[in-house]
Design a protein around this nucleic acid. Structure first.
Lengths: 143, 143
DNA sequence: AGGATAAAGTTACTCATGTAACTATCAAGG
DNA sequence: CCTTGATAGTTACATGAGTAACTTTATCCT
């Protein structure tokens, strides 16, 4: 046949690795706060970038806008974030973490740091190389 | 706060890269045959490993067993695969590609090879390094 | 000014997915 | 035997997700 090899096929390998790692980490924020993946990602984007819009969250995290919309609604219900309509463009809503949201983010970002440290330790190689490659992959995939 | 940085956080980066690449490639087999992702992965595992069970497909691809079960049912309906109950252990069903399934796999594996080649070309670096790192990540995540 | 176009965000509809329960079968131990 | 526990695989139920349509607001062009 062909010499196609699934074990070195990049989409396949990336997915497997991403799934394995994400599930491991997801367990931490799920057990701790009952967060879903889109909720954690939205929280992280907000904690990281502060005062951004839902559209920006979607762009930055590569999540679908409906996913973001629902995650934002759910975080608002928890009172972890609040919205402020932009005064100049009233289509736009700025999202900001509440004190409670900030506290949860601070806690989870520590958990994330520990997780990353543990992963890198087991990895042997450092994370910088991997991140460079992933950036290259993303750029290659988007043109 | 903390020095947590989302842009170098491995789960986040892996997911973004995996999504970007998978969506690109998914378009190819979707447009060509209307396959879903679990269906393609199951086909690929079978074409690659030949005569395996659903459980083995799940293990190899890291897909949930219900996903595999449904993908197998759907590929069977297309007559791309058939089942043979094991004669010694009648819980086990061996899966084999039909002639038609083999033909589709042969076609798609060419598409996959082209895709991979295009990706690697744009990537600059070669794929072997990336694959080594992904293997390391998977192992690190699973213990 | 006014009509067309576009962007931000939400929601209805439909399909995909995971959890848990289920069937069927097997292996081991008393 | 036959009961207990485990495995392969499927399915019912509830939740999650994407597509497309919609609302609201802004911009562009004439």
């Amino acid at each position: 046949m062909t010499d196609f090899d699934l074990d070195t096929f990049i989409p396949y390998r990336l997915n497997r690795a991403a799934e394995a790692v994400s599930q491991r980490f997801a367990k931490l924020y799920r057990d701790r706060y009952g967060l879903t993946r889109p909720e954690w990602r939205t929280l992280a984007a907000l904690g990281q970038l502060g005062r951004i819009t839902a559209t920006q969250v979607a762009r930055h995290s590569a999540m679908h806008k409906t996913k973001v919309s629902r995650a934002v609604a759910s975080l608002e219900e928890r009172r972890w974030l609040s919205r402020e309509t932009d005064s100049e463009d009233r289509r736009v809503e700025w999202l900001v973490l509440t004190r409670q949201g900030q506290a949860s983010y601070a806690d989870l970002s520590k958990v994330a740091l520990d997780f990353q440290a543990g992963l890198v330790a087991k990895l042997g190689t450092d994370a910088a190389t991997l991140n460079r490659e992933l950036t290259a992959v993303e750029q290659a995939a988007s043109r």
